[in-house]
Design a protein around this nucleic acid. Structure first.
Length: 742
DNA sequence: CGCACGTGGTTTTTT
DNA sequence: ACCACGTGCG
């Protein structure tokens, strides 16, 4: 069996897969067979008898990756993977916390807040503490709280030397207290609580350390400090930590990922050699050469050079459009051509740095009648109507969940206005109880609401009476527990949700929307049916957890043959025959906001590296001289990343305006095409003599060096937009600003 | 209570 | 340009 398992592996892959029991770091380049190595390693460990499935802990970031691992593993080994600990960080922490809810000081039916829920919970805390949301934007507090937790810090551990931070810490502390009262945990709490549980409870810790002999991690470069601490704790002194990752594909620093964990792992686990997977099985040579050349500009890399047996291939096609609409039109033309040559639409992807860019592309695609699918956007379980429905279910299960109560106490409207809700909140505060208890004491319409929830609960299940909470249709003391899909159907009908949207269908303006919402609610029942089937688990708690932890595919239906439109971030891990990287302009890609961040440009470059390595055969790089951004036309220069690609790998499809010998104008940056810039190209130049045009490099006494990215007006009013190297982007009046042309 | 209008923000995102 | 959110009116 081992021979089949290992056949076809290249030497470093084989080395990684068959490593003896020891910790390791596998530096796995894009398209180097990383997932294969990871799953084969597990299969090899099990099939050689080195470890039982029981002793494996395999961690990923996304549900998709976890699922993929399970599927591949099942194909390799005739074992039941169900009992194995393969999952996401959050999923596995949830599993641990459910199993030891008492030790973790959580109610058995604790609910998980998604980011939206978390934000509303924070807003409530801020209101209660009278925090000015002008000075403290709730979003910032959310980042502060989640960020601190990802560092492994509780409120009292955060260093707060200024009054501003101290206030934020206050909110943090009260927010955690509120969550505890309400029996809910947010995503990062799931990890932190689990970490604390294991570090404080020696018995539990030793139990799991004893159990897991091999801890395997995917996408290790994306781990946060807390996640790494968690891994270290579970690995203990005896387990082997097998980490697979690629520092060049680290693109999630903004959400707490710490590439430095790779170096730390080498030290902490005394890893002698790093195994490098550098043979790429995806792309043609030119594409890889371009990627290698680009990423070589980054400092502090672990060092890696992708190569392929498939040399050469087509050159990278570069296109400079006068504006964003023309860029889109060009792309549409190329797609049509490729399609006629037999490349499937689903084998092509349009990538962009930010979501807003999809608009123009979509418009052009619709006009051309090409079908496409945009990734990212509202996910199934995040839809308003679904969240409403889930809130009923959550409240039924855990009446302490104030978030859930507030969401539905007056939806559909039942005459409980802001006033009544405020009274409830006051009462709850006064008696130090949850809103539910306050509501139970209130009168009038609130009483009817309480009765409604109780009748829903009585009619469907007796959750509080479940001894194990494990579901399986165990009849409660009264009546019987309905199957999960029927519980949901009952709640949808009797909560008034269905009636509400059916009524909205009568209004012509809302018909479409209401129809869609009704369809989604029906889909929720289907999702529950599916869930019961797939998980052999029919407890409401499990389903609600599933809904929080797995927000579901963005859209139902995999479409027949449609183009893929997505951000570069979303494209990580995917591959296509043809890839278009669009909007390659300074300020867009690399993004403006990365300029002021330490290491920001390097991360943008890694993002570009990820984008390039998505392509198997053909790669287009496009940019526009001008584009509509935030409602205004802006002018950008070609991305510096284009300059970092070897000339000989590129084929320019647009006429090059300026000779390449001028290092600055290397990308054909000449004055914008007249058609695109009729009014905005100021030829007058009261300031410093020469003609001010986009791309011109300038020097300013105070702001330093920069380059012109926009010109407006003429004569005395002439203004230029300058993107300064260090001071950021500014509009300056030429009459006053002393700009020197460089 | 619900709708109309105004205002501000607008990189990337999984769980 | 566009969307999400909050306030003020009928």
């Amino acid at each position: 069996m081992n021979t089949t398992l290992l056949s076809g592996l290249n030497p470093p892959q084989l080395q990684a897969v068959t490593l003896p029991q020891q910790s390791a770091l596998v530096l796995a380049g894009a398209g180097s067979g990383k997932t294969r190595v990871l799953t084969t390693r597990i299969a090899w460990l099990i099939s050689t008898g080195a470890v039982s499935p029981h002793g494996i802990l395999a961690v990923t970031f996304t549900n998709k990756a976890a699922k993929e691992m399970v599927v591949r593993l099942s194909a390799m080994l005739p074992i039941n993977t169900r009992g194995m600990w393969i999952g996401t960080f959050h999923g596995l922490c949830n599993r641990l916390l459910r199993a030891h809810f008492r030790e973790a000081n959580l109610p058995q039916t604790f609910q998980i807040l998604d980011s939206g829920d978390q934000l509303s919970a924070i807003k409530r805390v801020m209101k209660a503490l009278n925090v000015d949301d002008e000075k403290f934007p709730p979003r910032e507090l959310q980042n502060f709280i989640s960020g601190s937790k990802e560092q492994g810090l509780r409120a009292h551990e955060v260093e707060a030397y200024d009054p501003y931070t101290r206030r934020k810490v206050e909110v943090f502390a009260e927010y955690d207290a509120q969550c505890q009262r309400e029996g809910v945990v947010d995503f990062s709490e799931l990890l932190l609580r689990c970490f604390e549980l294991l570090s404080r409870n020696q018995q539990l810790r030793e139990h799991y350390q004893e159990r897991f002999r091999h801890v395997l991690v995917d996408e290790f470069q994306d781990t946060s400090p807390l996640q790494y601490q968690w891994l270290k704790l579970l690995a203990g002194k005896h387990a082997a930590l097998f980490a697979v990752g690629d520092d060049d594909q680290s693109i999630y620093a903004f959400r707490g990922a710490n590439v430095g964990n790779m170096q730390e792992l080498l030290r902490d686990f005394q890893v002698g050699t790093v195994i490098k997977l550098e043979q790429n099985y995806r792309s043609h040579g030119n594409i890889l050469d371009a990627a290698n050349a680009l990423i070589a500009n980054n400092r502090n890399r672990m060092g890696k050079n992708l190569w392929t047996a498939e040399h050469g291939g087509e050159p990278l096609r570069v296109y400079e459009a006068p504006n964003d609409v023309e860029e889109a039109n060009f792309i549409v033309g190329e797609i049509k051509q490729l399609k006629s040559e037999g490349v499937k639409l689903s084998e092509m992807a349009l990538l962009y740095r930010s979501n807003a860019q999809s608009r123009v592309l979509e418009h052009a695609l619709v006009s051309a009648g090409l079908s496409y699918r945009v990734y990212g956007g509202l996910r199934f379980f995040e839809r308003q109507e679904i969240k409403h429905a889930l809130a009923y279910l959550r409240l039924m299960e855990n009446t302490d969940d104030d978030n859930a109560l507030l969401r539905i106490i007056n939806f559909p409207t039942r005459g409980i206005g802001a006033r009544s809700i405020e009274q409830l909140q006051d009462a709850a505060k006064q008696y130090n109880t949850t809103l539910w208890d306050a509501a139970a004491r209130a009168g009038g319409k609130v009483t009817a609401f309480v009765a409604l929830i109780e009748s829903l609960r009585a009619a469907t299940c007796d959750l509080p009476l479940h001894p194990q909470g494990a579901g399986r249709g165990v009849p409660g003391a009264f009546g019987s527990t309905l199957p999960l899909p029927e519980i949901i159907e009952h709640v949808l009908e009797h909560s008034g949700l269905l009636a509400h949207y059916r009524a909205e269908k009568e209004s012509p303006s809302k018909r479409r929307e209401a129809e869609e919402r009704l369809e989604n609610l029906a889909e929720l029942v289907t999702a529950a049916t599916l869930f019961v089937h797939e998980h052999e688990e029919d407890s409401l708690t499990a389903f609600l957890t599933h809904a929080s932890l797995e927000a579901g595919e963005h859209q139902a239906g995999d479409q027949d043959d449609a183009l893929h439109l997505m951000t570069v971030h979303a494209a990580k891990g995917l591959e296509f025959h043809t890839v278009f990287i669009t909007g390659l302009e300074e300020g867009l890609f690399p993004h403006q906001n990365s300029q002021n961040v330490d290491g920001g440009l390097d991360e943008e470059r890694r993002l570009m590296y990820v984008a390039i390595t998505r392509a198997r055969r053909r790669l287009y790089l496009t940019f526009a001289q001008s584009r509509m951004l935030h409602g205004k036309v802006g002018y950008g220069m070609a991305s510096c990343f284009l300059r970092e690609l070897p000339d000989e790998l590129l084929r320019w499809l647009s006429p090059r305006v300026v000779q390449r010998s001028n290092p600055f104008a290397a990308f054909g940056y000449a004055p914008p095409a007249p058609a695109a810039a009729t009014q905005r190209t100021a030829q007058a130049s009261p300031g410093g003599g020469g003609v001010w045009r986009i791309g011109q490099r300038v020097f300013h006494q105070k702001f330093g060096e920069g380059s012109i990215t926009g010109v407006e007006g003429g004569g005395a009013d002439a203004r230029v937009q300058v993107n300064f190297k260090h001071a950021g982007s500014k509009w300056l009046a030429l009459e006053y600003a002393k700009l020197t042309q460089l």
